[in-house]
């Protein structure tokens, strides 16, 4: 599945999977930092949100109420970091009463079966 670049370096298909809600635990913030760092290594980075991970992208978050940083704004920086392959599982949204319009950034909403195939085709998958 590796793509050979013109200069001979191998680019890996790399996916970071978010399954945790934000704020209650530190996972979402740590994974976001990992995404930003992985963007620096010229890999083919994919970011997926499924299960409770879809809550990370909910609009209107105000964690200032808990004296915590509003890192939901940081997802909007991903485009500038060259991370543009962002997938959200439709079933996970629907189960939670959410729709694409509730999210802070434009994403590609895909069905669970397609998410399964997408994950299966990756070289490296990190899930939290």
């Amino acid at each position: 599945m590796n793509e050979q670049d013109t200069d001979g370096t191998v680019t890996k298909r790399f996916m970071i999977v978010n399954r945790k809600a934000p704020h209650g635990t530190v996972y979402a913030l740590e994974v976001l930092e990992m995404v930003l760092i992985s963007a620096m290594f010229d890999q083919d980075v994919h970011v997926a949100f499924l299960d409770d991970g879809v809550w990370q992208l909910r609009r209107g978050q105000m964690p200032g109420a808990l004296e915590m940083k509003d890192f939901s704004k940081t997802y909007r920086a991903l485009e500038g970091y060259g991370v543009e392959k962002i997938y959200v599982e439709g079933e996970s949204l629907a189960e939670r009463g959410l729709s694409e319009q509730d999210l802070v950034i434009p994403v590609e909403v895909i069905a669970r079966a397609d998410m399964a195939r997408l994950m299966d085709g990756m070289d490296v998958v990190l899930t939290a």
Binding site: P22, R58, G60, L66
Partner: peptide, 12 residues
Amino acid sequence: LGPDLAARGLEN
């Protein structure tokens, strides 16, 4: 708890 709703974008 209201502040926990607000933090998660669920105030309204």
